[in-house]
Amino acid sequence: MASVAELKAAIDAALQQIGEGQAAVQAASDKLSEAQQTLAGALEGSGHSTVDAAQASLSQAAQELEECLAATLAAVEQAQLYVSTL
């Protein structure tokens, strides 16, 4: 069985990985937002249903990335709470 120090070190490593993942998700979200703006500008005034569908899909992806970040924040909070009990 791992010692408390080893357990804390492993949790800290996992939290660092989560942080790196959060940064990647945030970068993806930023790029997605840029893509939405570019697409909106390029296709402004188009009434084609595929344009609306593309915008809706991008909006859904943005929402799912936000949900991903929220879930990772909750995971970090729970892991930190656990560490505080050790």
Score class of each variant (00 low, 15 high):
S29Y: 13
D30P: 00
K31D: 04
K31R: 04
L32C: 02
L32N: 10
L32Q: 07
S33D: 13
S33A: 14
S33C: 04
E34A: 06
A35P: 10
A35Y: 14
Q36S: 14
Q36T: 11
Q36F: 13
Q36K: 15
Q36E: 14
Q37Y: 00
Q37L: 01
L39G: 00
L39T: 01
A40P: 02
A40K: 12
A42S: 09
L43K: 12
E44K: 11
E44H: 05
G45I: 07
G45R: 06
G45E: 11
S46I: 01
S46E: 11
S46W: 07
S46F: 06
G47N: 09
H48G: 07
H48W: 12
S49E: 05
S49T: 02
D52F: 10
D52T: 06
A53P: 02
A53M: 06
A54S: 13
Q55N: 09
Q55K: 10
A56L: 12
A56T: 14
L58P: 00
Q60R: 15
Q60A: 15
A61I: 06
A62K: 12
Q63H: 15
Q63D: 15
E64Y: 04
L65I: 03
L65W: 01
E66D: 15
E66N: 14
E66L: 11
E67D: 14
C68R: 06
C68H: 05
L69K: 09
L69V: 09
L69S: 11
A71V: 01
T72P: 01
